[in-house]
Simulated assay, not measured.
Amino acid sequence: MAYNKQPSAPPQAPPIQYLPAFVAAAQLGSFRAAAQQLNVTPSAISQQIKSLEQRIGLSLFSRQGKELQLSQAGEEFFSFAAHSLGHYQQGWQGFAEQFLSPQIRISMTDYVANRIIIPRLADFMEHSGIPLEIHTSSRNQNLQANTLDAAIRFGTPPWPEHHARVISDAQVAMVASPEYWRQHPLTCRQHWQHQTLIHARRVTNDWQRLEQSQGYTITARQQLMFDSYETAIEAAKAGLGIMLASFPTSNQELRSGVLQAHSEKRFSSGEHFYLITKPNDHKEKRYQQLFSWLSAVFAEL
């Protein structure tokens, strides 16, 4: 009668706590140097490596006189042990930044950062004690796919897996430089054919929304496309055309006179300014402080 021999189970992996001593000794070529780096005694390093070798059943180091070298097995073990330890340390750093750090990493457009947040940032950090790390982007960032905690967005929900708080309502109005309005008056429909329309977003056609609210098609002389609100505002200030500015964020440009609204009439954009946050119970109280501050700032614009 024949019996099928069952393959023996592979040995269990040694405990991961042995890896720092082994990797340090392999990289530095010295138990003493590894001990100094890890703030332990040389005998502790020697004992951990001895225990590691006993668990594996192989010698990981060989000595050529006074020189400490990896054995063939040691070199193979080091190739994945160092990678595993580095991956763990990198993962821990991300975990600590997300759940243990008081800092909030927040994304926003250049315009919001430069005109609204940065001029008031010192006051917020002084009174809240919350350090902000500001990232600027004209694109909506997926908070779940990176280390960001929050974002200030102009748009409409939903944003899956994010918590959205309304900072401020938004309206739009046609604005241009005073010189542009002098050279290109807009007092009747026929005047549209002499106008240049500035677009601040490539994905959303804000002028098309205005057409729908006005009930007629706008036929302009030319269109200028920009991928950010910041550059669109600068183009309007330079007298290149008309743009649909968002309020209350652009109140400053009107008060300073660098831009003028076509009329006092403003239109509902159907969008709002939001604080978007990544779910995190550890930072929820800080999110709420940030939201309260942003709401007050936008209300005063």
Rank of each mutant, 00 (worst) to 15 (best):
Q193C: 10
A238P: 13
A173M: 09
A200K: 09
G257Q: 06
H191T: 03
P160I: 00
S213N: 10
N205T: 01
A236T: 00
W207S: 01
K283D: 09
I218E: 08
A170I: 02
A176C: 13
I218Y: 08
P248G: 02
R201T: 05
M225P: 07
Q183R: 13
V172Q: 15
Q183V: 01
Q195L: 03
T219V: 11
H191G: 08
W159E: 11
A235T: 00
Y229N: 10
H199Y: 14
D206N: 14
D206L: 14
P248Y: 04
E253T: 02
L186R: 04
R189T: 05
A236Y: 00
R165F: 07
E284W: 05
V258F: 09
S177N: 02
F226C: 10
E284V: 02
P160N: 04
I198K: 11
R255T: 07
H272Q: 15
A236H: 02
A232R: 00
T217H: 13
K237I: 13
K237H: 08
D206K: 12
H282W: 07
T187R: 10
A232M: 07
T204H: 14
E211I: 00
A200P: 14
W207R: 02
D281E: 12
A173L: 07
H199C: 08
E211L: 04
D169W: 03
R202W: 06
A176D: 00
G270T: 00
E179C: 07
H262S: 08
V175K: 06
Y180A: 07
V166D: 13
L186C: 02
R165S: 11
P185R: 01
A235H: 06
L224N: 11
Q193H: 11
H194E: 15
A164Q: 13
L254S: 04
T231I: 11
